[in-house]
């Protein structure tokens, strides 16, 4: 199917070529919705609605099915996100070692709630279940970097590095 033949209403400004290109390697294979969504998110930083609708048409499946998958998994985001992603661990080891106070502090400094992005799009604040560095609890990740043995008064200095 050609890119031009797929019509998505009211989104003339959206760059469908970018979606088209990354779909190529997946066409004709089975079980590809999750990897495709991962790729789209890698490309755009989130899942733009037109990209999902376009994907549905290319795969000849209902868009609702793609939305169903996209909203099931914690990894996928339907809104744009900040430049830096903060993931505060809410796992058991971190819970027992008092991550709640660290989480409160981070939210207070950034003035955001869980899943929200700061106004300047610098940080998105998320909470996850276990980063797998429980030996260093309490733990948070910023992008791919892990910070362990946290305390509420360490949060500010760490955030200032970004």
């Amino acid at each position: 199917m050609q890119a031009e033949t797929v019509k998505i209403d009211g989104n003339s400004s959206f760059d469908f070529d970018r979606v088209e290109n990354l779909l190529q390697e997946f066409l004709g294979k089975k079980g590809m919705i999750v990897p495709i969504l991962q790729k789209i998110q890698e490309e755009f930083g989130y899942l733009p609605r037109p990209a999902l609708e376009y994907t549905a048409k290319m795969l000849r499946i209902p868009a609702s099915k793609i939305y169903g998958v996209a909203t099931f998994y914690a990894q996928f985001h339907l809104q744009p996100r900040g430049k830096n992603i903060i993931r505060v661990c809410r796992g058991t080891a971190c819970h027992v070692r008092g991550v709640s106070k660290v989480a409160e502090k981070a939210q207070e400094i950034l003035k955001v709630g869980v899943g929200e992005t700061t106004e300047d799009l610098k940080f998105t604040y998320e909470e996850v279940a276990c980063i797998g560095a429980c030996g260093l609890a309490p733990v948070m990740m910023i992008n791919d970097q892990t910070f362990g043995k946290l305390a509420p008064d360490k949060v500010k200095t760490i955030l200032e590095k970004f």
């Binding site: 809410r90 279940a129 276990c130 797998g132």
Partner: peptide, 11 residues
């Protein structure tokens, strides 16, 4: 998948 929050042996 190691989903148990507080475990990291498989990792």
């Amino acid at each position: 998948d190691e989903g148990d929050p507080g475990a990291f042996m498989d990792r």
